[in-house]
């Protein structure tokens, strides 16, 4: 049972990432595509946090915790995840801003109709 529970977060990370990629590849709406990209990114959060998890450990905050008294989860991956969230917010904001401009200039946000650049 516990083996399954240990593998589960990794399987979920892989599943979430692939489902996001599937959504991106088949998207009919650019806003939806940007959302799918955010889904892919959520998979990286899941993976990073799963990597740092320890059984019976608590948050790595030492304000009310004597160092060494209890196991804590890996703070490095949590720092990475926070940075990743910041990066993701920037990317999503920029992509949505571009989508707004595409909607204004082309009058559509359907990738099937946005195919001027080719060949």
């Amino acid at each position: 049972m516990s083996a399954v529970l240990h593998v589960l977060p990794y399987l979920i990370a892989a599943y979430v990432f692939l489902i996001g990629c599937y959504g991106l590849a088949t998207s009919r709406n650019l806003i939806h595509a940007v959302g799918c990209l955010a889904v892919c990114q959520s998979a990286t959060y899941v993976l990073l946090l799963a990597v740092g998890y320890r059984d019976g450990a608590t948050a790595p905050v030492f304000s009310d915790l004597a160092p060494g008294s209890r196991p804590v989860v890996d703070p490095v991956v949590q720092a990475l995840t926070l940075t990743d969230v910041v990066v993701g917010a920037t990317v999503t904001a920029l992509l949505l801003a571009l989508t707004v401009q595409i909607s204004k200039r082309h009058g559509t946000v359907d990738p099937d109709e946005l195919r001027e650049l080719r060949g």
Binding site: A13, C21, L37, T44, L47, L98, Q101
Partner: peptide
């Protein structure tokens, strides 16, 4: 804006692949 969006979607996805690799 159209070229920039395609650029951004593909490259951001690539960057997340990279981050998955870093995590592993």
């Amino acid at each position: 804006v159209q070229g920039a969006l395609g650029f951004a979607l593909v490259n951001s996805l690539g960057a997340y692949f990279m981050l998955m690799g870093i995590a592993l």
